[in-house]
């Protein structure tokens, strides 16, 4: 395969609520971050199947903003050696 939607090293913040992921997308974009809302790949399928894709170097900024606004995802994973590794799951009521 040539290019992929998610590149090696990129993160996916996977959400299970459509409203929540749209809020998070708006927050990050209005902060000037080049993130992208994409359908979650089959390998990381979630309830609503939406994920915010971002680069490795954006990790700290993105996660801090989401945390501050109480918009953390259901879980965070990263593409390493062509496999999605779950970095962390977040326990809260509305993902």
């Amino acid at each position: 395969m040539g290019q992929q939607v998610v590149r090696e090293g990129q993160y996916l913040a996977v959400f299970n609520s459509t409203h929540r992921v749209l809020k998070a997308e708006g927050l990050l974009k209005s902060s000037g971050l080049a993130i992208m809302l994409i359908p979650a790949p089959r390998a990381v399928q979630a309830d609503c199947g939406l994920a915010i894709r971002f680069d490795e170097e954006q990790h700290d900024t993105v996660m801090q903003l989401l945390s501050e606004q109480n918009l953390l995802p259901a879980f965070l994973c990263q593409l390493r050696n062509d496999t999605y590794i779950t970095i962390r799951e977040y326990q809260h009521e509305n993902h």
């Binding site: 939607v5 459509t18 749209l22 809302l37 994409i38 359908p39």
Partner: peptide
Amino acid sequence: LLMKNFIFTLL
């Protein structure tokens, strides 16, 4: 959102 999702899913 759905249109963007559809187009990405075609990949």
